[in-house]
C-alpha cells in the first residue's frame, strides 16, 4: 500500500503573543512545529505501515526551512520526503496550494492520501478537499479512525457535530484527519539518526504536473485586503446599583446584543 501524507510546518499559535502597546503580533521566538492534525494523519499512516507494511511518503510545500518537519516525519518512521519549494509557489491561497500539491501528487503513486483536517495558522480545512477534487478522488474529512477491511477497502469513522458516521470507501481516496484521532509517536533515536542520512527531495514548480498559472499569488483567486490584530479590549461600564436594578440592566444589555 502506498500512502502519501501532506504535512505543514506552522508557527505554534498558542505561543503567539500580542504586543500590548502596538497591538501587533510578536512572532519572534515562536517555535515552528508540525501541524497537529497533520501529525495525527502521519501517525494514522504509520500505523497502517506497522500493521500492513505500507510505504509512507511525506510531502510539504514551504520555504527551505520546512525541511525540519520532513526530517521529523522521517524520524517518526516515514520512508520518503519531498519538499516543494519555489518562489513560484509563494503567496498561494488554499486553491493555489492545493493545485501545487495535486500537481506533485500526480507524479506519485498512492492508494491513500492523508492530510490534516486543518492547519492551526490558517484554520481553513480547505486544502485537503481541494486536492481530492483536483485528483478526481473521493474525500472523507474529520476522520477519527481508519480500519482496513480488505486489500483496498476501508472503514472510516468521521466525526460530526452530533456524533459520528461510519463510511466505506475503496482506494484511491483522500482522508483529512483529526489530531485527536490518535496519540502520535515520538521520534526514535535511531529514527533521528536515520532521518539525517536520508535525502529530502527538493522539487521545483517545473517538476510537477500543473499549469504554472495555477500556482502562487497568480493562481490565487482570494487576496488578503488587510490583516490586523484584534486589538485590546476596552473596559465597559461598571455599575454600583441595587440587585433589582442590576438584574434589569443585565437583561436589557443581553436583549440589545440578541443573546436572549
Amino acid at each position: 500500500m502506498e500512502i502519501v501524507v501532506c504535512i505543514k510546518q506552522v508557527p505554534d499559535t498558542t505561543e503567539i503573543k500580542i504586543n500590548p502597546v502596538t497591538g501587533t503580533l510578536i512572532r519572534d521566538g515562536v517555535p515552528s512545529i508540525m501541524n497537529p492534525d497533520d501529525k495525527g494523519g502521519l501517525e494514522m499512516a504509520l500505523r497502517m505501515k506497522d500493521e500492513y507494511g505500507a510505504h509512507v511518503t511525506v510531502i510539504t510545500m514551504g520555504p527551505p526551512q520546512a525541511d525540519l518537519v520532513l526530517r521529523e516525519a522521517l524520524a517518526m518512521g516515514a520512508d520518503d520526503a519531498i519538499l516543494l519549494t519555489d518562489r513560484k509557489f509563494a503567496g498561494a491561497d488554499t486553491l493555489a496550494t492545493s493545485n501545487a500539491l495535486a500537481g506533485a501528487l500526480r507524479t506519485l503513486k498512492w492508494d491513500l492520501i492523508i492530510t490534516g483536517r486543518q492547519a492551526i495558522d490558517g484554520d481553513t480545512a480547505q486544502v485537503g478537499p481541494q486536492i481530492a477534487e483536483h485528483l478526481g478522488i473521493p474525500q472523507i474529512s474529520y476522520v477519527a479512525n481508519l480500519a482496513r477491511k480488505s486489500e483496498n477497502e476501508f472503514l472510516v469513522k468521521k466525526e460530526t457535530e452530533e456524533g459520528y458516521q461510519m463510511l466505506e470507501v475503496s482506494a484511491p481516496c483522500l482522508l483529512t484527519v483529526l489530531a485527536s484521532a490518535n496519540k502520535a509517536r515520538y521520534m526514535s533515536v535511531p529514527g533521528i539518526v536515520d532521518a539525517y542520512n536520508k535525502e529530502v527531495q527538493l522539487w521545483s514548480a517545473a517538476m510537477i504536473d500543473v499549469d504554472e498559472t495555477k500556482l502562487g499569488l497568480k493562481g490565487s483567486p482570494t487576496k488578503v485586503l488587510k490583516a490586523f490584530a484584534k486589538g485590546m479590549k476596552q473596559a465597559g461600564q461598571v455599575y454600583e446599583v441595587e440587585p433589582e436594578e442590576a438584574v434589569g440592566l443585565i437583561i436589557s444589555k443581553l436583549q440589545e446584543k440578541f443573546i436572549i
Binding site: P11, T13, T14, I16, I18, L25, I120, D121, G122, D123, P221, T222, K223, V224, L225, K226, A227, F228, A229, K230
Partner: peptide
C-alpha cells in the same frame, strides 16, 4: 475571518472570480 489561533483578523476578497 480570524487567523493565527484568533490572534489576527484578515479581510479577504475574491474580485476576479
Amino acid at each position: 475571518r480570524p487567523a493565527f489561533g484568533g490572534n489576527l483578523m484578515a479581510t479577504i476578497m475574491c474580485t476576479e472570480h
